[in-house]
Write a protein that binds this DNA or RNA. Structure first.
Lengths: 270, 270
DNA sequence: CAAATAGTGTCTCTAAGACAATATCAC
DNA sequence: GTGATATTGTCTTAGAGACACTATTTG
């Protein structure tokens, strides 16, 4: 009878068929756009960071940052490492979206991907671009679910507009799954992005993830606008304030100069 | 310049270092135990199905059902297939728990695991045992979180008692992560089980997943007892009834013969 | 009848939605 | 002053928790 030590000595992992494993990260932030009227609030829009592929396959197309899992690191470490390498941005936390493993999802062969969302505050996004990150760009997101489970994803940039049509396949355990009907993005990344957005929208209901999108100090109106950009649902400001009052603390500072009453700055409660 | 077709023709996936991928499934159910007093309700307890390993490594120890991902199947299909093979039980739905990939988690080498929870109704669990499943057994779960983030997991069976001590590492996005301090189970499965339980407890708050644990027809008291077994929190029956009234529909049948007023049987609302 | 669950009604408190009203600044 | 956001207060309604009470069955 073979003992465990002996078994492990003779075990040859190379004998077995195994997939390559990649990670993909949907990095989201909320950006403000200038308005004509100096008095009026900026428009806020949920945005995603994409990189243009410099290599085959899908060379020249836009894709999520990510890459192959290396020996000695956890999947989450890999997602973090690849994100920093490709975009020069270091995400604070990664939220797992799911594992994408449909046969045929990658033309190179048997490759499965573990996908994450990360959320960036206003301070982090300035770093974008750098050594390896020349082709990393922010895209404004428009993602609407129509009546008959058909969804339209549009990613817009000053130069490019990317479209994808998806079909809502089902929603279980707070994660919605989609089928791609048409996509301008590399691989099955339109599907991953749609899942990522729906996961973040789900989280934003209890307002906690909203704070991750904000800088260290922020006005309550900014916070509300960020939530509205994520969830696509407008709320009344007194009710919003009441709801999130337990999550934030006042500072002594004010934001003024906008043609109306200055707003007190708040900070995330620890 | 190489085109995409040519690139793919020359691409050799074997050149790259890659991990083996397994799935592990925590199959949960709620079982009732007889009481002395014929009038009194049965005690309900959350239970998990474990298999005794017939091979190295961890030969003879108890572990979650699961196995290696094969070419041509999705990770979820693999989890389903392995579960049926090893336990003869077909789960209705799988809820993803996360991907466990710490270096060194498997003595055979670089092996990462995608973990799922599945929930079984009272009807399904009779099938357990069969061809390959002689060593599949149900264990009662006791899982308590103490003050200082220390957790004690105890799995009990008529023959065996398995212990594990865990440390709560942090809770993010509704998933709690644990460190193993001591474990009687194979691999890092104590950690996976703890994550699975905390995920199901989280879901059970909005009562929907509770229905998956029940047979086709059930009394509201049975439903309440199941929820209490999962969450470890007792509730008042009028309030419970009010809360779940929208999730169920009456049938014409009653459950009688228990020394007290018969209870109407309900069914899950579609 | 006693014990035990089945099931209803209702009081209180909290949280959410709607909306009215006041405050303060830049031009 | 005017137009814009900032901030507070309050009315109403929906839901959760607590609890008292009635209904029905079997030994």
């Amino acid at each position: 009878m073979e003992g465990e030590k002996e078994f492990l000595k003779n075990y040859n992992i190379e004998k077995y068929d195994r997939p390559s494993v990649t990670t993909d990260v949907a990095m989201l932030t909320v950006r403000a756009r200038q308005t004509d009227n100096y008095r009026t609030d900026e428009r806020h829009s949920l945005s995603i960071l994409l990189v243009r592929r410099g290599r085959h396959p899908y060379k020249g197309m836009w894709a999520l940052p990510g890459g192959f899992l290396q020996r000695g690191e956890s999947v989450e470490d890999c997602a973090l490492r690849e994100t920093v390498e490709e975009t020069n941005v270091t995400p604070a936390a990664l939220m797992p979206i799911g594992i994408f493993s449909d046969p045929g999802r990658d033309p190179r062969g048997w490759i499965i991907s573990s996908a994450y969302v990360s959320v960036l505050g206003a301070e982090d996004i300035r770093q974008v671009g750098g050594d390896d990150a020349e082709d990393a760009k922010w895209f404004d997101i428009s993602f609407d679910e129509k009546e008959n489970e058909e969804c339209e994803l549009t990613l817009t940039n000053s130069d490019v507009v990317l479209h994808a049509q998806l079909h809502e396949k089902g929603s279980q355990f707070g994660r919605t799954d989609y089928d791609i009907k048409q996509s301008d993005l590399a691989f099955d990344h339109a599907k991953i992005i749609a899942s990522a957005i729906s996961a973040v929208r789900d989280q934003a209901k209890d307002a906690n993830i909203v704070l991750d999108f904000l800088p260290e100090k922020f006005t309550l109106n900014e916070m509300q606008k960020v939530q509205e950009a994520i969830t696509n649902v407008a709320v009344l400001s007194p009710n919003f304030r009441r709801k999130i009052s337990g999550l934030v603390v006042e500072t002594d500072e004010y934001r003024s100069g906008a043609g109306h009453r200055p707003a007190k700055l708040y900070r995330k409660k620890i």
